[in-house]
Nucleic acid binder design. Structure first.
Length: 650
RNA sequence: GGGCGCGUAGUCUAGUUUGGAUAAGGCACCAGCCUUCGGAGCUGGGUAUCCCAGGUUCAAAUCCUGGCGCGCCCGCCA
């Protein structure tokens, strides 16, 4: 999208500058059109041959179109290029954005006019400000994203933080490219874990502890496991509690509601520290009593591929016949149980019902009440039998952020949707899969208590402590409030970056020295670059001049920075576009955006070192001030998408 | 048995979706850079059978086939 806009109206003479919400795309399109004209090839074909050269000495853009044409024309690619070169140079000379066209072997290398790009990019950023990077490509689409769905029976360990950070950042990205992204948390308040804790809480009545409640439960859970595993009597008692939990007004259900609410509030404190919020919570207990399962069951039995087994091992069960699906044709038993012989639902059965609800296929049976107001000022709503109706609406896309171990069960849920005839919804169901965080020699297990010492709170605390020391070194004169605030911002940034910068399909081995390394490829470097830009603007004591000549930003360091700034909207879009669905999950390239941010900060650091701003001559100073402001805006926007706190001084 | 992911320098990783130019960074190590906008920084120094073997291609870390190693998944469980 482009529009014309008077950027600077200095002496009454209208200097009309072009504004682009996506400068790099604007430049690219110019080039594509030129090549398309010259080679008489469709723009789509040309577009696929455009790439960024590995070295800026080889140009700013390149095309490999000669390879494709060579095959067609049965000629040597180098010859193809040479044949068309005069025509290409002639045509390109009419485009002010293109400075030079060269070739190296079969490669066509394009040099952009530095001044033109600087004016377009920096001008656009100053105009668009905090909206730079936003676009409308996915405008009108609604997405529901579920994360992190931690059981309300323990504190988040650092692996849960990976889930939550990925989910939150994914939502931010979707929001920036135009989606209406709604954030959902799933609360399993009916699991065996809850029953075990209720059983335990009755034994340790009135226990007083200074411990944060989720941590207290996490420790109790480790104890209860040992008892549970060693005694059949206890197992029977716990099963009885579990059964009672599903009764609406039992003492067990009431105690559970209290315990779960308290635990969830404690877990949310952790979530809020990381800047992670939600719009809705779906509670399992609300699902159980909402009638949604009966509705789903009725709906399923109408399908010919979902049936009630009459005899054999699974007699009485309602199952999905997966044998018709390619991915499952090798299963020993093609029948996936959705409802057990006693009529109760399996996890898959409940997940199918919930997925149907998310798409609005099952009319919303839930009522909602306020759970709590979050530090961002927004209230998170929960499903509640005693609540009010609400208009959640339908969603075009549903994304579940879940560990890749659940690829199989997730695929089953989507497959059942398909079997039921909702192939479009099945196709729009995404399992955002990621590998787990672990230690060198162990997984984080709630049962075994291996998470102890690695809770998200522990990691945040340690990182904050360390950051506080560093802040203190650099700002000895400042007050405690400042130091504490900044230390916490640095800790949050470091942890979020650490999680996002790792490719989601790679396991993370948690190592303290990596999380706590604030140098190099890490969030503090990004925050620091922003703080440096901020300081320059502050010291200048004046705003960016509206008549700054942006065309003179042509030195290597300046132009490299300008180019990186121009890439930002395209980078965001690329991450959104690369959310491609595979058979066993949808990949999310969170690390692509952190890599972009790191590269941007790096180029600013180089600019900072080689291009003085405040000491430069008036006209240079004015243009560099504009560039610094454009960088600061872009970095701040990028950090905002990543959920990394923007720091003015550190 | 079937399936999924990962394997790149001392170490941790990016690049693989869509094949393209000299395989890119961080950490660690060494040497420079503050009378100059903040040194959590910048500049220079170097290490790689891209797990192995074949194949496709003008071109393979990237695609295909077959192996090897590590992790994970395949319950009326939760």
């Amino acid at each position: 999208m482009r529009r014309q806009c008077g950027l600077s109206l200095v002496s009454g003479e209208a200097q009309v500058s072009e504004i682009s919400t996506n400068p790099w795309k604007t430049v690219r399109q110019t080039l594509v059109k030129v090549l398309s004209d010259v080679f008489s090839v469709s723009q789509d074909v040309v577009d696929a041959t455009i790439e960024r050269p590995p070295d800026s000495a080889l140009g700013d853009l390149a095309s490999t179109i000669a390879f494709a044409l060579a095959k067609q024309l049965k000629k040597n690619p180098v010859a193809v290029v040479n044949d068309f070169l005069p025509k290409l140079k002639e045509r390109a000379s009419h485009e002010s954005m293109i400075k030079e066209v060269t070739t190296k072997g079969p490669y066509i290398n394009i040099f952009i006019d530095q001044g033109q790009l600087a004016e377009l990019t920096v001008g656009s950023i100053l105009e668009l400000d905090h909206k730079y990077g936003r676009c409308e490509e996915f405008q009108g689409k609604r997405a529901l994203i579920e994360y992190p769905a931690v059981n309300p029976s323990k504190p988040w360990h650092i692996g849960h933080a990976r889930n939550a950070i990925l989910g939150d950042t994914l939502c931010n990205i979707l929001d920036w490219v135009g989606y209406d992204a709604v954030r959902l948390d799933y609360i399993n308040d009916l699991g065996l874990q809850i029953a075990q804790l209720i059983w335990k809480l009755r034994q340790v009545e009135d226990e007083r502890s200074d411990m944060k409640y989720d941590h207290l439960l996490g420790h109790l859970y480790v104890d209860v496991q040992k008892a549970f595993d060693s005694s059949e009597t206890i197992q029977r008692e716990v099963r009885e509690v579990s059964r009672k939990l599903e009764e609406l007004n039992s003492d067990e259900a009431k105690l559970s509601a209290k315990m779960v609410t308290r635990c969830l509030k404690a877990q949310n404190e952790t979530s809020y520290r990381l800047g992670i919020y939600h719009d809705y919570q779906v509670w399992e207990s609300a699902i159980a009593h909402s009638g949604i399962l009966e509705l789903a069951k009725k709906m399923m039995l109408k399908s010919k591929n979902i049936l009630k087994i009459e005899e054999g091992e699974k007699a009485g069960c309602i199952v999905a016949d997966l044998s018709i699906i390619d991915e499952f044709k090798d299963l020993k038993d093609p029948y996936k149980i959705l409802f057990r012989s006693d009529g109760t639902r399996t996890y898959t059965g409940a997940d199918v019902a919930l997925q149907l609800w998310k798409f609005g296929i099952i009319e919303d049976p839930f009522k909602y009440s306020e759970f709590e107001e979050q530090p961002n000022g927004k209230t998170v709503m929960r499903t509640d039998l005693k609540g009010k109706e609400s208009k959640l609406g339908k969603f075009d896309v549903v994304m579940n952020v879940i560990g890749s171990r659940q690829a199989h069960p997730q695929k089953m849920v989507y497959t059942v949707l398909d079997i039921l005839g909702y192939s479009k919804e099945s196709e729009n169901s995404h399992h955002i899969a990621y590998e787990f965080v672990g230690l060198d020699d162990a997984d984080f297990s709630g049962r075994e208590g291996t998470w102890i010492g690695y809770s998200t709170d522990d990691v945040l605390n340690k990182a904050t402590e360390l950051a506080r020391i560093e802040v203190d070194k650099r700002n000895p004169e400042d007050d405690d409030t400042f130091k504490d605030t900044v230390a916490s911002q640095i800790a949050v940034g470091a942890i979020r970056y650490f999680m996002l910068n790792a490719s989601p399909d790679r396991q993370i081995t948690f190592r303290w020295n990596e999380v706590l390394d604030f140098n190099g490829d890490a969030a503090p470097y990004l925050q620091y670059s922003h703080a440096r830009a901020q300081r320059i603007l502050e010291k200048a004591g004046e705003d960016v001049a509206s008549d700054a000549d942006l065309k003179i930003l042509v030195s290597d360091a300046e132009f490299a920075l300008v180019k990186a700034l121009a890439h930002f909207p395209e980078e965001l879009l690329e991450v959104a576009r690369s959310l491609k669905k595979n058979v066993w999950g949808t990949s999310f390239a969170s690390n692509r955006l952190t890599a972009y941010a790191y590269g941007l900060a790096n180029l600013f650091s180089k600019f900072y070192d080689s291009c003085p701003v405040l000491k430069a001559e008036a006209n240079v100073r004015a243009s560099r001030m504009a560039l610094v402001r454009a960088f600061k805006t872009t970095m701040a926007n990028c950090l905002t998408v990543l959920g990394i706190p923007v720091v003015k001084r550190m």
